[in-house]
Amino acid sequence: MLSQFNQFLLNFSLLITSLLFAFLPLRHVKLISPASPVKLRILIGFIAGFISVLLVLNSITYDGAKIDLRLVALVTAYYYGGWVSGGITTLSILGARFAVTPPGAYEGLILTGLICIALLITASIYRRFASHTLKDYLVLIGIGIGYSLPALYLLTETFNRFLEIALVYIIFILLGGYVTYSFLQELRKHFQFVQTQQELALTDGLTNLANRRKLDETLASYDKYGFAFSVLIVDIDFFKSVNDTYGHDGGDVVLRQLSHLLEHCCPDQALVGRYGGEEFVVLLPDTPLKDAVRLGETIRLACADQHFVFSTYPAFHVTLSIGAASSDQGETSFEVIQKADQSLYQAKQTGRNKVVAYSEE
């Protein structure tokens, strides 16, 4: 019994280690389910199939039976990827089982195929009446055990031999299933936490727009890969008077409302960020300067027409001065930002509430 325990422990360690390294590439995927894109479910199938092959190749042999935790990999594949993932995993299991089967002794291979297919069919029926919880995952594991025990009995030479391994098999399959589910859930929570912290580090706390660090990183990537872009630097006119009249809370409301306006007006590929204070930056990849100026005018007019509301004060208006420049006007993104800033200064000096494009003249 101790020898069996040790062998199962090695199989169990292999399962958990494989899961950790195999699912690392998927750490940025927010949700994996049978409704995920087909390409993702195919990838899940190949990952679970690879793990299954490792488990089968390191299985414990008892008479004609080979015992391992492949059932956990199959249930996991189906649970997260449906028939697509489960089917690929099944084929991987059968391929590995065939590779370790002596010529002419194909009873175990046939029973393995029947168990996998029966489990997938039963799981498909069960899923219609179940939710996506630990209980349902363990029920599928239990169904798989129920299908596996008769096959195990047929492949062992004596009933005592069957009992010798069945108890350990049941305990380790259930334990393996529970730990696998919990491990994957905790791993996903950890990845989501890390991703959230990374996003917060690149997000302005007041407006939820990109912050200075995110903008600088994006500009650095433009330099690195030679991307063409245009930039708008947007500044609120007389923002100090807004703070003086409505207080800093009123000023914060204006900044938040303006951030919503910028996101609404800008195309999806644009990156809108707060550069500091009342200054915003809009990065427009693959956008000519004339189109950037046109967008700047749209933003300026939309802001001038918007009613800003704070507390019990009457609705009020603010205007914007905007400077524009494009990447063909500077050798680096830093130079482009400088030129857009010069254009913004010109807009401020010549009356405000206008868009000025940088010109060499």
Rank of each mutant, 00 (worst) to 15 (best):
K30D: 02
G45I: 00
R300P: 01
S92K: 08
L57G: 05
Y137M: 05
L289T: 11
T298M: 08
R70W: 04
V179G: 06
Q192I: 10
I60C: 05
L206E: 05
I115C: 12
I233S: 01
L174D: 09
F191Y: 13
A347I: 07
I236P: 05
F191T: 07
F12A: 04
Q346H: 14
L10W: 06
D63N: 13
R294L: 11
Y169R: 08
A65K: 10
N211V: 06
F229C: 08
T196M: 12
A151D: 03
A77G: 07
L284I: 03
Q7W: 02
F23D: 10
L15T: 01
G330C: 04
L74F: 02
L14T: 14
G49P: 14
T133F: 04
C303W: 09
I16L: 11
I115T: 11
D216M: 07
L26F: 15
S343W: 09
R300H: 02
F98A: 13
E331Y: 09
S36T: 05
L154T: 09
V234I: 14
R27K: 11
F129A: 07
F46I: 15
S333P: 09
R212Y: 01
Y178R: 08
N160R: 12
L140H: 02
F310E: 08
P102E: 12
Q7D: 13
V56A: 01
Q306K: 15
S3K: 11
D341R: 06
F193I: 00
Y169C: 08
T196C: 01
L167P: 03
T158S: 15
A65P: 02
L284C: 04
T158P: 01
S36V: 03
G226Y: 01
L289V: 11
F193W: 10
A201V: 03
P37F: 13
L10I: 15
D63Q: 01
I236M: 06
I143L: 13
F308H: 06
Q7T: 08
E217Q: 13
F227M: 08
D63T: 00
A73H: 00
G45S: 10
K354F: 10
L109R: 04
A77V: 04
S221K: 07
G177R: 02
K348C: 12
D237L: 08
L344C: 09
G95L: 15
